[in-house]
Amino acid sequence: MSLFGITVSFLKRRIIQPVANLLKQGMTPHKLAVTVAMGTVVGVVPAIGITTVMGTALAARFRLNIAATVLISYLMQPLQIILIIPFARLGIFIFGLQELRFSLNEITAMFKEDWLNALNLIWKANLAAVASWALLAVPVGFVLYLLVLPLLIRFMPKQVQA
């Protein structure tokens, strides 16, 4: 089997089929749109390791499909890693913190010079990243909901929309 065939098989088995199964569980377009928006927003929180707990808690609170919310947040993990530094830079800018260089050489030099100060700077940058994410989470989630809902209404099977 070719690499393309293996990739297509993997995507069908791990992404397309689970999402299709979620659509068959009787979720309304509104609930699924909220689930997609919330899973996406939670999935890009710039704090590695809390997406499962946060997604589960929010899905339970709003009576959404927990498995769907967590699945979507897991699918967002590559984007989460890509967005950590932009969120940190935005938070540093918003809160007027000391600029932090993000290259490996500069971080290594900071740790060699004063490791406690380096940890302090990285901790503050991480908090600033989470704060900037929190400022953007609700508006971005709302926009995602508004973008996804018409698509789901149009393309979901009619019997599921009842």
Rank of each mutant, 00 (worst) to 15 (best):
M1W: 07
G5C: 04
G5A: 09
V8G: 09
V8N: 10
L11I: 11
L11H: 07
L11E: 10
K12R: 10
R14C: 12
R14S: 13
Q17F: 10
P18T: 01
P18V: 01
V19W: 00
A20E: 12
G26T: 05
M27V: 13
M27F: 12
H30M: 10
H30L: 11
K31P: 03
K31N: 13
L32K: 01
L32R: 01
V34T: 09
T35K: 09
A37R: 01
M38W: 01
M38L: 15
G39P: 00
V41Y: 00
V42L: 10
V45W: 08
P46M: 06
P46L: 05
A47E: 08
I48R: 07
I48F: 15
I48A: 09
G49H: 03
I50T: 06
I50E: 12
T51H: 13
V53Y: 11
M54H: 05
T56Y: 06
T56C: 09
L58D: 04
L58C: 07
L58F: 12
L58P: 02
R61G: 11
F62Q: 07
F62I: 05
R63K: 15
L64W: 00
L64K: 00
L64Y: 00
N65Q: 05
I66D: 03
I66Y: 06
A68C: 08
T69R: 00
L71W: 08
I72G: 02
I72V: 15
S73C: 03
Y74G: 11
M76Y: 00
Q77S: 15
L79N: 04
Q80S: 11
L83D: 05
I84S: 05
I85F: 13
F87K: 14
A88K: 04
A88Q: 08
A88G: 05
L90H: 03
G91Q: 03
I92F: 06
I92W: 04
F93P: 06
F95Q: 10
G96F: 01
L97F: 12
Q98P: 06
E99S: 11
R101G: 14
F102Y: 15
F102H: 05
S103I: 07
N105I: 12
E106M: 13
E106Y: 02
T108Y: 09
T108R: 14
A109K: 11
A109F: 04
M110I: 05
K112H: 13
E113A: 15
E113M: 10
D114N: 15
W115Q: 12
W115I: 10
W115N: 13
N117A: 14
A118P: 03
L119A: 10
I122E: 10
W123R: 11
W123E: 12
A125P: 11
N126I: 07
L127D: 03
L127T: 03
L127H: 03
V130D: 03
V130C: 13
A131S: 14
A131M: 11
S132K: 03
A134H: 04
A134R: 06
L135G: 14
L135V: 08
L135D: 04
A137L: 06
A137V: 08
A137E: 08
V138D: 01
V140P: 03
G141V: 00
F142E: 04
F142W: 14
V143K: 01
Y145S: 00
Y145D: 01
L147V: 10
V148S: 07
V148A: 14
V148D: 03
L151R: 02
L152V: 01
I153C: 13
R154H: 13
F155C: 01
K158R: 15
Q159K: 15
Q159W: 11
